[in-house]
């Protein structure tokens, strides 16, 4: 296990380096620059600004300069938000996304697995259809409909919860965004879980267990649940990164200061350093959670562990 972790860490560094390199050169190719604005800058001013951001040098020098700073953990100044460095922006936005994302993720996982399992046990019954139909609303209803709908009902009409804002993470401000995100992810997890659970329930060893007269509860909990989780676990890695790095729509609708907003604005503003910084963080997270998923896979499926 330790060897596995060390190996993964050793692989992570070149992976991230490749990621940074590709992103660095690719964003420069996008039309427009951070300094493209409605009021065109005079060549003089543009030259001054470029000098300030070390963009007056050839691209490869800029790249080396960026890597040099990166080695010191410095992601550089933001191009758009002149008063902040990328480190500051990430440090303030990440905890927000983490909190919302982690809560939504746990809720979605627990509810999704429970619903999926329940539906699978009662396959093709009315309960199955109803539960899955409700769950599926989360897949078929776009988040930009769901989130404002929640606001309209619970904030504008009922006045139960605030319509937006972070308010230092006050619970009341967290409820609606977490709910919206939970519904979005829960449905997918429920569907995957249902599918794989049905498959497991049809397998020989479960039939044997059933034939032996073991009670359903024991069969499900002790024998069926673990193998049925495999596809869900596969889905979790990327989903978790998606949840943590924030849902652009949810953050925009609820006015949350998370990373999702940064990513869209960063891309649209051509905020090179912000996008690079975010890419790096997302990349590192992806690698981390893929590793975690692989470890989980091993824990659940002994066959993988053997190899």
């Amino acid at each position: 296990m330790l060897k596995f972790i060390v190996k993964r860490c050793a692989l992570a560094v070149p992976t991230l380096l490749i990621l940074v390199t590709i992103t660095f050169f690719l964003i420069q190719m996008a039309p427009g620059s951070p300094f493209t604005s409605e009021r065109q800058l005079s060549p003089q001013v543009l030259a001054n600004i470029k000098a300030m951001y070390h963009m007056d040098k050839p691209l490869w020098q800029q790249y080396l300069y960026y890597l040099g700073n990166l080695a010191h953990g410095d992601l550089g100044p933001s191009f758009k938000y002149a008063d902040h460095t990328v480190n500051q922006l990430l440090a303030s936005s990440f905890p927000v996304s983490l909190r919302i994302g982690a809560l939504a993720f746990i809720a979605a996982l627990v509810l999704g697995v429970a619903i999926g399992t329940l539906a699978a046990c009662k396959q093709n019954s009315l309960l199955d259809y109803c539960v899955m139909a409700v769950a599926m609303t989360g897949i078929v209803l776009p988040s930009f409909v769901l989130a404002p709908l929640l606001v309209l009902v619970f904030s504008v009409n009922l006045h139960w919860l605030p319509a937006g804002g972070w308010n230092h993470g006050h619970w009341a401000n967290v409820v609606l965004p977490v709910t919206a995100m939970t519904i979005m992810y829960m449905a997918s997890i429920a569907r995957i879980q249902r599918g794989s659970m049905i498959e497991v329930l049809n397998s020989h060893y479960i039939r044997t267990a059933r034939a032996k007269g073991l009670p359903w509860r024991i069969i499900i909990m002790r024998h069926a649940l673990r193998p049925s989780l495999l596809p869900v676990v596969s889905y979790l890695g990327p989903a978790f990164v998606g949840v943590i790095t924030g849902s652009v729509v949810v953050e925009t609708v609820f006015g949350l200061p998370g990373t999702g907003q940064h990513f869209v604005h960063g891309a649209l503003n051509r905020d090179y350093s912000l996008v690079l910084g975010l890419t790096l963080v997302i990349g590192a997270l992806t690698i981390l959670f893929t590793a975690v998923v692989d470890i989980l896979y091993g824990l659940i499926d002994p066959k993988v562990r053997c190899q």
Binding site: L11, T15, I18, L19, I22, T23, L26, I27, M29, A30, P31, P238, V241, F263, V264, A267, V275, L278, T279, I282, G283, A284, L285, T286, I287, T290
Partner: peptide, 19 residues
């Protein structure tokens, strides 16, 4: 191949699309 996937997955595809 998984590394490739990871790189692609953490790639800011919005840029790719805009590009």
């Amino acid at each position: 191949m998984m590394r490739v996937l990871e790189i692609l997955q953490s790639f800011p595809f919005m840029f790719l699309v805009i590009l």
